[in-house]
Design a protein around this nucleic acid. Structure first.
Lengths: 343, 343
DNA sequence: AGTTAGCACTCGAAGCATGAGAGTGCTAAC
DNA sequence: GTTAGCACTCTCATGCTTCGAGTGCTAACT
């Protein structure tokens, strides 16, 4: 049962009005505002039909109509035209990501900030666990009597480091050799796969080296341990405080709590995710506490693994703007990442 | 004009009641609750006196009394007994700071989390700029054809790194020598003081080295640039959402906004600060937006510089618990930092 | 003199009625 | 198929009343 052109127009008008005002829109007000050439009564009839089909709903008998989640879904699937950020905005992002930024942390911070600022919703970026990255290089560098730094470089150029203690007798040269042992054994493997058993052969070394090897293994272990699974960065959480749907403190708290425990958000974003923009509206989300919100997200490739990013806001969301922004940003990150990195 | 013992008791009772209920406390209710051996009428008389002296105030004529900020101040100065965290709680902190944690970031995160969890207020930790740390060691480590990592170690063992490009002809040995040049020139200086002019002499090197020197200087510059002045970490911001004084969305937004732009909090905490616990109540704070809140803070030493940490909550705060916790944590951090580090 | 009981008074919060305004659905006419 | 007209519904704001907690004051008590 598809919609007539006029019904689609009315649906769109209602969505636009409702998204910007957060008030139910009535037939009379709508005709007046949009200067339609049909009468309020006609609109009323169409509205009644749209409601019966499930695209609209009425908060109370005597209120106007608001789009149902199904209505938003229809709009998003069949009618929406994404609005990509203006050139000025894109420039802003390019500028924020200037070439001197090497720290992955900084990049994530800035992208998140951009997303939330442009869309006015909260943004999230999920960074795949470092464990999935590939091992590129390991070095052990003495820094002073009895201390050295284990330096691990991954395929996409992320650098991990950790101090270890070493026998005072070890020379820099020997440390270098130990490092090379690791390199030969591990290069190209995923960090995740670094298991002690794989390195048993390294045990057959002379004793002083064995100590270093042991310490280095420990260091790698803790480095991996402490890089929790996927890292979630949320920016602009406060944006949702503006939305009238969260004037209720309890709802607000629930949402902000989800944001604060970043673990939760990780589970909310669907796992299979392409670089296409995906949208989850209200109850389409799995987690109960978030059924009142919508997600607009996309994936980005980082060294073979998929990261996720997007924005989260009320169901009454400017999907067109959010989708356009997320899409643009995801593309820009992909470009950036393929330009950088070590390979 | 000092208070009689009975007045002090009444003041304390009012403070305790008001802090836990957020309601004005009336004479009758107070006598009943605390099982006082004096009558409500007597309490009323004393209350009237306390109000005249400025230690109490009345929201409306027919409401009970609440402590004024001056009342809290009096309590904090002359009557308060700090409640230090229980052994179990302290253990929790020690556990969270287990020796395997080397990352300064992790330490800060965990301490913040502890503070906010134990006190139920928002916690902040201000980490002095890395620029004030002293230069301990610099090394340039080749990682692949044409690329190397500049590694800077500070006096307290913080490790900074940044990738640079190098002429493909450079050998590891030569890089090491360049590194040594830097070490001779810089060891013991503050990072802040690394000025190009100081390093002019390094310019007289052969050309290929000059390039590396130049790149390394750039790397140091950006490392310093990107480590913004003082870093502020706020944890448990959501705790304040529970406080009834922030049921007003506007107030809530203001406070959360201050939290989100960490720059602001830096200016709020007094500059001269010992390791003693300091308390700022309500209007004693300089910044307007924060005159409705209280701060409990202390300093901690990190490699010669002073960091700051504390909690921030409503004026109606459990100062006793907050002060005890902040004091304990500050001492524990000091111990931790003096045990660690490179010197 | 200090303490207490009693009482009139004040003020905010909660509950209820009322009216205005916006919107709907239906019917009948165009 | 579209529109005008009209009775009806429901929310929201406003004002009024009542209720309860608390105060301040006076007079009596110890």
């Amino acid at each position: 049962m598809s919609l007539t052109e006029r019904q689609r127009q009315i649906l769109e008008s209602i969505i636009k009005d409702y998204v910007s005002t957060a008030e139910p829109v009535g037939s009379r007000a709508m005709v007046r505002k949009h200067g339609l050439s049909i009468s309020a009564a006609t609109v009323r009839n169409e509205m009644a039909d749209l409601e019966e089909m499930g695209y609209l709903e009425q908060p109370h008998t005597s209120a106007g109509r608001i789009p149902s989640e199904q209505g938003f879904r229809y709009y998003v699937d069949y009618m929406m035209e994404s609005v990509i950020p203006s050139d000025a905005e894109i420039d802003l992002l390019h500028q924020a990501l200037d070439d001197r930024i090497q720290e992955w942390n900084d990049v994530v911070q800035r992208v998140g900030h951009f997303l939330s600022q442009v869309t006015n919703y909260a943004s999230f970026i999920i960074v795949p666990s470092i464990k999935l990255s590939q091992f590129h290089d390991l070095q052990i560098i003495p820094i002073q009597e009895g201390q050295a730094i284990v330096l691990v470089v991954t395929d996409i150029g992320i650098i991990l480091h950790r101090r270890i203690t070493i026998p005072t007798s070890m020379t820099a040269d020997e440390l270098k050799k130990v490092g090379n042992l690791f390199n030969r054994a591990l290069r190209g493997k995923r960090l995740l796969e670094v298991k002690r058993s794989d390195l048993m052969m390294l045990r057959d070394e002379i004793k002083s080296r064995r100590q270093v090897i042991e310490k280095t293994l420990e260091a790698i272990d803790t480095l991996l341990d402490h890089s929790q699974d996927d890292r979630v960065v949320i920016t602009g959480a406060l944006n949702i405080i503006k939305e009238p749907e969260f004037k209720d403190l309890d709802k607000l708290r629930k949402v902000l709590t989800i944001f604060e425990e970043d673990g939760q958000l990780k589970d909310i974003v669907p796992d299979q995710i392409g670089e296409q923009v995906g949208i989850r509206i209200g109850k389409e989300n799995k987690l109960d506490d978030i059924k009142g919100m919508s997600l607009v997200f996309a994936g980005y490739k980082t060294g073979g693994e998929m990261g996720k990013m997007g924005v989260i806001g009320p169901v009454r969301m400017e999907y067109w703007k959010a989708a356009g922004t997320v899409e643009s940003v995801s593309r820009i990150i992909d470009e950036l990442l393929s330009k950088r990195g070590l390979k």
